[in-house]
Design a protein around this nucleic acid. Structure first.
Length: 398
DNA sequence: TCTGGGGTCCTAGGACCC
DNA sequence: TCTGGGGTCCTAGGACCC
């Protein structure tokens, strides 16, 4: 007899999402190796998603594109259409909402559905899972993989085991057995570094970890990682996924095809990043009082510098000037720059901001003007020319 | 093979306060 | 002379995930 309070979580993951959307949009790509992330010749691109056909060549996510081209010269390479992926993602998230009021999206291509107590309404777990798959396929021509268990953490791992178009159910009570059957590299949350550390301590399987006490593990790996490992190998039901960040951030970064060497091009890049980032802040109706500047040098050494201000940054000029100031505090001259990034945090909604900051009135007008300009620009891209010319003037004044 | 871009969270050390 | 203990906030760096 089934416990009325048994928790049921579905984790649903789209299969090779970006590549599958490309195959759907271009029927001639069907059955062929499709690689999303860049075109052959892009010097510093990496693979974002490889279709299952491409994976047979050994191509996978995060692989440098140059390597992918070597492994799979006959592949179909595309840079990707991210606004389309985002639209399709929303469409699928809306299908999920027909089945549960508790949908937790954790990235563009995956979500948890809390299906606790829905059996009377929709039927057995397995049947409803198949129905969701069918509905998604009918409406989007895409396939998903589903993992089901009473633990979010276990469901998340289960959905990845029988891809593509998979369905993996771990019955209530079998979570521990399931975790103990997995190799260490399938344990979500153990990356390369932690895996190497774990192995260097003589643990080669989830069972090796399972046999140790929590205090032993925390002594060896620190409080956090130790407790995590202890609970993970037990498929602990209290391990949840939460999509509300404590200090959310919005950032933008760019790796340059060729390292930047000159002040002129560095400042130009910072200017453009500031423009684009402010556009995103305005769009999301937030202001930020913390700014982080990230610099990655030609040798891949990466440094950041961050400052929190008493009042929020309101315009892209302010963002640019602030970014430049932080940048020069850290910058090592005569080192080529491979990447620059700007990240805003300590976000507050712009409504709150303009209500609480007594000095904001004047800047509020400026910010609103800027938002109007951004909106005009996005409707009419040729207006960007004006901004470019503004920047040319800006540079010659220096 | 020479390593994207978007995020989140953790840790360690220093500053500062009582 | 040779240096408390606890709490909190901030910063820089790093691990991890998709």
């Amino acid at each position: 007899m089934e416990n009325e309070f048994e928790k049921v979580f579905f984790h649903i993951d789209l299969d090779a999402f970006f590549a599958s959307v490309e195959q759907r949009e271009h029927p001639e790509y069907k059955g062929k190796p499709v690689i999303v992330g860049g075109l052959p010749g892009d010097r510093r691109a990496v693979v974002s998603t490889a279709s299952y056909e491409a994976r047979k060549y050994g191509v996978h996510s995060a692989m440098p594109l140059t390597k992918a081209v070597q492994l799979c010269p006959e592949g179909i390479y595309v840079r990707g259409n991210y606004s389309l992926y985002s639209t399709v993602s929303n469409q699928i998230m809306n299908i999920f909402k027909r089945y549960s009021p508790y949908v937790t999206q954790i990235s563009i291509d995956e979500a948890f559905l809390d299906m606790t107590g829905t059996e009377k309404l929709f039927g057995k777990k397995e049947d409803v899972a198949r129905q969701i798959k069918q509905e998604i396929f009918n409406e989007t021509r895409l396939t998903v993989s589903i993992g089901i268990s009473s633990s979010m953490y276990v469901s998340k791992i289960a959905s990845g085991l029988n891809k593509p178009d998979g369905l993996t159910i771990v019955n209530n009570g079998d979570e521990e057995k399931f975790m103990l059957s997995l190799p260490l590299n399938k344990v979500w949350g153990i990356g390369d570094k932690t895996l190497a550390h774990i192995k260097s301590c003589g643990f080669y399987s989830t069972k090796d970890i399972y046999e140790k006490s929590e205090s032993f593990l925390t002594t060896l790996f620190g409080n956090n990682t130790g407790s995590f490992l202890y609970n993970a190998v037990r498929g602990n039901k209290s391990m949840t996924f939460n999509n509300q960040a404590k200090n959310p951030s919005i950032g933008i970064e760019k790796t340059f095809e060729y390292d930047l060497q000159e002040k002129y091009s560095i400042e130009g890049a910072l200017f453009e990043l500031a423009q684009n980032l402010m556009w995103r802040l305005l769009n999301q109706k937030v202001r930020a009082s913390t700014l982080t500047v990230k610099i990655r040098y030609e040798d891949f050494e990466t440094v950041t510098i961050q400052e929190t201000f008493e009042s929020a940054i309101t315009t892209s000029d302010e963002l640019y000037e602030t970014a430049k100031k932080l940048f020069y505090k850290k910058y090592k001259q005569n080192h080529g720059i491979r990447l620059l990034g700007l990240t805003c945090s300590s976000l507050i909604s712009s409504d709150d901001y303009f209500q609480t900051d007594l000095f904001a009135f004047d800047r509020s007008k400026k910010a609103k003007l800027e938002k109007t300009i951004f909106e005009m620009e996005s409707k009419n891209p040729s207006l960007k020319v004006v901004k470019a010319r503004l920047y040319e003037n800006h540079k010659t004044q220096k």
